[in-house]
Simulated assay, not measured.
Amino acid sequence: MSDIIPFPQNKEKLIKDIKTHFEQEKYEPMYDTFMKYEKEFELTTELALLKCEMLLRMEQYLELREEAIVLLKQGFDAYNQLMVYYITSLHGLGQYYECIEVFNQIIEQVEDHNIRMQLYPIKEDAQMQLNENKKHYIARIQQFTELNVNQQLYLIFDLMHEGQYGFIDTFAELLSSHNFHSNVQTIILEYLKKGQYEKKVDFSKYETDFSAYPARLPGLEYASFTQHVIPKVLERFEDNYGDQLRSEISQMLQSFAIALYPLEIEEVATVNVWVNTFYHYIEQMLNLSFASVENLNQDVYAWISKVEKNIKQ
């Protein structure tokens, strides 16, 4: 019995259906027709813009953002209009800070008056939304020392997500004048770094004095412990025991990375010593080996002990 060969979709018919659905404001069937079209054919610039307009009218802002990013990367010759859709999607998603950031990056390059007039109202409304949100945060920040650890962390994460970096002086003062949980101290430093706080901040962590210029810090993601110790410990553990516990060990090491930041670990011991000590520490913790104490560098182990107490709080 011969295979059935599916009859290919008629390109012109699909394009006609897309445009008809659009004119009739039937966006659901229009969306389905686009799915059929893209299985077999490449989008033209006209169709790409039509698809973005459809997603906008459907208020599918997340998909609109992703679509605009893909189309921009593909180099369609409608850069300005695609940027309008991209910035509109950020606004629709409530990503007001990112919306303003992108606007500021591109507006000088946009010469078309009509495009500029589409962009300015979006940016100005995003700014108003940020200003309105700022009033909400003031009261919460004034009560910051009264919040529990999770509430403090959530508030700072929320401020970063909303691009609210107008409180850097306040948080620098909080960090230098209060002995917060070590994770809270770390996230305050991340907030100050992202807010480009240039001044020196003095604070105490694990009864150790720190001085930092937040804008100059590498950031938690790029700290030496995150970049070098974690992957080497994981690799060594997997070589000896497989990857069954990779997720749990990785999570534990990430907790240590947050707790230790911004400690310059190589001022305590070399990266290899940190890796070796953490590896044997994990072995002992999991009862996989009873390594002698000499395998645990005492300076590094002292920091591990401090962090352990902090994590258990």
Rank of each mutant, 00 (worst) to 15 (best):
N104F: 06
Y154W: 13
Q60C: 12
K123Y: 09
G166I: 11
N310H: 07
I87A: 09
M54S: 12
E308G: 00
R57D: 14
A68F: 00
N287W: 01
D77H: 09
A48S: 13
F278L: 08
D77V: 05
E25K: 01
A126D: 09
I304C: 11
K135S: 13
L153H: 07
Y86V: 05
K134T: 15
I141F: 00
M117K: 12
Y96G: 01
E38G: 12
L43D: 14
E63H: 03
M252F: 08
K232D: 15
E98P: 03
T208Y: 10
E40R: 08
G219F: 05
V233N: 01
Q118S: 08
L189M: 01
Y120T: 11
R216H: 10
M35R: 12
E101T: 08
E190Y: 00
Q152F: 05
H178C: 11
P214Q: 09
K19E: 13
I258L: 05
K19R: 07
H181M: 08
A215P: 02
D202L: 06
I138S: 09
D125Y: 06
E108L: 12
F103W: 05
R65F: 07
Q60E: 14
H21F: 14
S224V: 14
E238S: 13
D299T: 14
E266A: 08
L159Y: 07
K135D: 11
H91D: 03
Q24W: 04
N287K: 01
E294C: 07
Q251G: 03
L64K: 05
F203E: 02
E66Y: 11
A212E: 13
Y279R: 12
M1N: 00
E173F: 02
F256E: 02
Q185I: 12
T33L: 02
W303N: 10
T45V: 13
R246P: 08
K309E: 15
Q81S: 11
E101W: 06
D17K: 01
P214R: 08
A259D: 10
N148I: 15
I168V: 03
R236W: 07
R236G: 09
Y120E: 11
E28Y: 07
Q227I: 15
I5F: 06
I138N: 06
T45E: 15
Q109G: 15
I141D: 04
I106A: 05
V300P: 10
C52F: 05
P214V: 07
I4Y: 01
Y79E: 09
F256S: 07
L296C: 12
L192S: 01
L260I: 09
Y213G: 00
Q24Y: 00
P6L: 07
F157W: 13
Y206D: 11
Y31D: 04
H280E: 06
K134G: 10
K123G: 02
P29Q: 01
V273G: 11
E264F: 11
E12M: 08
E248G: 05
Y165T: 02
I265S: 13
I141P: 01
A212P: 03
N114P: 04
T88P: 00
K51D: 14
I18E: 09
Y85E: 09
L72P: 05
E248S: 08
F225W: 00
V84G: 02
Q196D: 01
Y61Q: 01
H136V: 15
N10V: 04
Q244W: 07
K309P: 05
M58P: 06
K194G: 00
L263F: 12
I15E: 14
